[in-house]
Design a protein around this nucleic acid. Structure first.
Length: 476
RNA sequence: GCACCCAUAGCUCAGCUGGAUAGAGCAACGGUUUUCUAAACCGUCGGUCACAGGUUCGAAUCCUGUUGGGUGUACCA
């Protein structure tokens, strides 16, 4: 099982989510290619104080605005009110600070946050009005996410919702107490002592008996296992949660869950901008939808400038721009080792030349064009031919393809495969340039051999790129 | 304080379980098209692999320490 994406339903997706989505999708495909049966799941964080903030702001300031009436994608509309909440909240904090309160006091005492907390409580008590608003706004967000996911080309076999799982885990806590893995403090809170493992004491249940994050995850892990009985489960989550997952997995092991040994945290680094981290509230985020749109637009401009596809229909053109734009974006994000942080400079748009997605796509298109012009059909050559150094090196490189998939799958890392595919494409271009025109080759055996080689390259590029979630065009 | 991650060319990154003169792309400069797509190819320039020790016949790679950057360490998620 691969769990990825896992968005909050209070704002649209940004570049960080894009990295997560592409990684999760690609790792799933890699595992499939390596022989596993894979389930892709999305654990949606659809409840909590952050959702209530958007809801409250919408209630107060929207005049009943909807995605339809505003002509805004649902997730963006909800995100807009999340930002408005934060702005108004800050105003209140400033006012309270001027009245002499400390920052901390002001944050707690602001009327807005109290209202949001009251709303969360009402939600938990099943208040019909709050629940209805919650369903409505989450619905908008899901419609928006569906579009983003479709554009990114990612999908899921199953969705889990925190509104259904946030109460889980209490049984697990009971189990842990019974087994003596957990202990209860005087105030009734439940803890586990991990100091012998070099970690800390960790709370697993509040004194008032309610769940915390890890309680919920313990329960969800159990539920997912009960649902699928998978022997491996991968969580694609950013590296700021390394500690959380270390603790989670350790607790499950101590509880004697044999399946806990199959749990992995695919930890990836933050996406940084040149001026530092992305912050949703400060508007310094690269929006996923905007980014995709820009990539497609860039692909369009570059393609039109080259003028090679003037005979394409409008629909074919749109498809091509989409494939190239997303190919550039996906390759850019996937070629870097997941655990490394990634720098994205919006000013320097993603390249289309050199070690890039479009370069590999171009190589594929070029080969397909060659094969078409040559009237290629796959026939094995039998003659004893002498081949060039480049041809030999290329054959050696191509032979490594199955091994590369295994390496990438075992390491949960598309990066090595991405770089391998680049090597293959580069090698082909070198070969293609060195060798005299293949179509005009008079030695039919040699001609066939070179076409066969080219065809193998095209197949590997196509299959390999597919594992990265990238479509290679026939022409570009 | 403690824990985890990262540090390789001006910039962005490769470098598998230690193996020969450390590789790409971008940027800069120069060249290649009457030949199968120039989103390509070839060349020049550019590195004390953060620093200091250690292990080893051999270290960018393993160990220790130092420095720098990031993250975490909530009865938030």
């Amino acid at each position: 099982m691969v769990e990825y994406s896992s968005p909050n339903t209070n704002k649209p997706l940004h570049l960080g989510h894009v990295r997560n989505n592409l990684l999760g999708y690609s790792v799933s495909e890699l595992l499939k290619a390596n022989g596993a049966e894979v389930f892709k799941v999305n654990l949606v964080n659809d409840r909590g104080i952050h959702i209530c903030k958007s809801m409250l702001a919408w209630q107060k300031w929207s005049n009943g605005e909807t995605p339809e009436s505003a002509g805004i994608k649902g997730d963006h509309l909800v995100g807009k009110y999340y930002v408005i909440f934060d702005k108004e909240y800050k105003k209140e904090i400033d006012a309270l600070k001027e009245a002499g309160q400390t920052e901390e006091e002001a944050k707690k005492n602001a009327a807005l946050i109290k209202e949001a907390q009251a709303m969360l409580l009402a939600w938990e008590h099943g208040d019909p009005e709050v629940k209805e608003l919650w369903s409505k706004m989450n619905g908008w967000v899901y419609d928006g996410f569906a579009v983003s996911y479709k554009n990114l080309g990612v999908d899921f076999d199953k969705y889990y919702y925190e509104s259904n799982t946030y109460l889980l885990g209490k049984d697990t806590v009971e189990e842990g107490l019974a087994k003596g893995v957990f202990f209860k403090k005087e105030d009734g809170s439940v803890w586990i002592d991990l100091t012998e493992d070099g970690l800390d004491q960790k709370l697993v249940l509040r004194a008032d008996g309610t769940s915390v994050y890890i309680t919920q995850d313990l329960g969800t892990a159990q539920m997912k296992y009960d649902d699928y009985k998978m022997d491996e489960s991968i969580y694609v989550v950013g590296n700021e949660q390394d500690y959380h997952f270390k603790v989670l997995f350790l607790i499950l092991q101590k509880l004697g869950k044999t399946w806990a040994t199959g749990l992995h945290h695919l930890s990836y680094g933050m996406v940084d901008l040149p001026n530092g981290k992305m912050k949703s509230r400060e508007g310094t985020v690269v929006d996923a939808d905007d980014l995709v749109k820009e990539m497609i637009e860039t692909a369009k401009q570059k393609t039109e400038a080259l003028g090679k596809i003037n005979d394409f229909s409008e629909e074919e053109k749109e498809t091509l721009y989409h494939n190239i734009g997303l190919g550039a974006l996906k390759y850019f994000l996937l070629k870097v080792e997941p655990k490394k942080r990634l720098l994205f400079d919006p000013a320097e748009s993603i390249d289309f030349q050199g070690n890039t997605g479009p370069f590999i796509q171009y190589t594929h298109a070029r080969i397909k064009s060659l094969l078409t012009k040559a009237g290629y059909s796959a026939v094995t050559t039998t003659a004893d031919l002498s081949i060039s150094k480049t041809e030999l090196e290329m054959i050696m490189l191509l032979a490594k393809y199955p091994g590369e998939i295994a390496i990438a799958a075992k390491g949960f890392s598309p990066a090595s495969l991405a770089n391998y595919l680049y090597e293959v494409a580069k090698m082909f271009n070198k070969f293609y340039h060195e060798v005299p025109p293949i179509i005009k080759e008079e030695d039919t055996e040699m001609r066939q051999l070179r076409l066969n080689l080219s065809a193998v390259v095209a197949n590997i590029l196509k299959a390999g790129m597919r594992l990265l979630g990238i479509t290679v065009p026939e022409r570009m």
